[in-house]
Design a protein around this nucleic acid. Sequence first.
DNA 1: TACAAAACAGACCGGTTGTCCTGTTTTGTC
DNA 2: GACAAAACAGGACAACCGGTCTGTTTTGTA
Lengths: 215, 215
Amino acid sequence: MAPRKKRTNDPEGMRRRVLDVAEGAFQARGYHASSLGDLMAAAGITGGALHHHFPTKKALALAVIEERVAAAVRETWIEPVLAAPSAREGVRAVFEAVAAELEQQGYVRGCPLNNLAHELSLADDEFRSALARIFAGWRQAIADKVRADQLEGGEGGTDPERFAALAVAAYSGAMSMAKTSQDPGVLRECLKGLEGLQPSSVGPAARRRRRVLLR
Amino acid sequence: MAPRKKRTNDPEGMRRRVLDVAEGAFQARGYHASSLGDLMAAAGITGGALHHHFPTKKALALAVIEERVAAAVRETWIEPVLAAPSAREGVRAVFEAVAAELEQQGYVRGCPLNNLAHELSLADDEFRSALARIFAGWRQAIADKVRADQLEGGEGGTDPERFAALAVAAYSGAMSMAKTSQDPGVLRECLKGLEGLQPSSVGPAARRRRRVLLR
DNA sequence: TACAAAACAGACCGGTTGTCCTGTTTTGTC
DNA sequence: GACAAAACAGGACAACCGGTCTGTTTTGTA
């Protein structure tokens, strides 16, 4: 009964598995409530391997934030909005897509970015700035889309920064409530509140800019 | 050198001191990051006394939520909105008051309710429902105010529930970003986004309801 | 094949955490 | 004043956490 066991080094795959597990655990239980022991067990990994890829728990969380959370925001928000016919329509589509997904999922774990932002922003400045960067990129993408709409003649009286800030805030806050009540309905409620309001000052200045600089 | 020390039992005061310290610690560091040892030291209390008033850490947090967090929402949101001339004006006033307070304070610790909601909603169902109740009361107070405005002839086309949900969500999300960027400016940005939008359908149906059922 | 570095295994440790437990003192009540 | 309950003191403890350490195996390279 010779101990014939082979080991195949797969640093990239192992790192990915750890990030997968950590991303899920941080999302479901939070940073402090997720012990490295839990993560090691869930990922089927040993302490040595974990420490080799991520020297500290903080380094692991930082990697989750910068690689996974940022990507999640990009995929579920930034890309759909940029691909939409307009910023307003893009925001609406994302709200509905997320609401629909949560409804058929049956539970609400909340926005990964907001979850970690609340727990870690005040704890560590590196965490804070990493999370703040993601928020900033999120807002800027929406604001840029509004500006693009304006160059094409739409969204006359809408202030890009204000619209972006409000969209991100409304989504974040709605997800917060949806998570707490375990009911995604509030997402739809907020979307309707957002839609029921029209841009106020569609003045002549806005109308004049129509179809100018259309490429 | 006789050990002449007198002890004065003050259960209510001691309980209050513990809640004071716990409220601050949970707000600044979160639930998991606040150890009972820290709280005992900060409150100048012994383990026996703490355990007498709050058998478990969970019981303490539940008391903080139900007594302190709920009161904070009541004082900074519900009462000012109800006292305002209209729901819309009340929301605006609270946004500005909080923004002004944070600006002169120099740092942003976030909304107590949202902070705990994110960390504890998925951890324990008792936490979750207690926090959900506070969110619900908050939203209902604003919605009721909108309905009161409508009975007095204003806010024709505004859906009370939608407006309330959007106001709470926008505030929660804005505070989330303000905390992460340590800059309350986004609160004002969101408020302007909220204000720059007018109620859409001020149709005849809304106008017909004017001054009806005015008590 | 030689060999150094990377990749991984697994035990170990100091410190902390939340809770419990046994006493002692104060307080209300008859 | 007797006495039980409440209020408080303070130590003990087992579990756990994150990090470190040593050793082994794999892998790239010459």
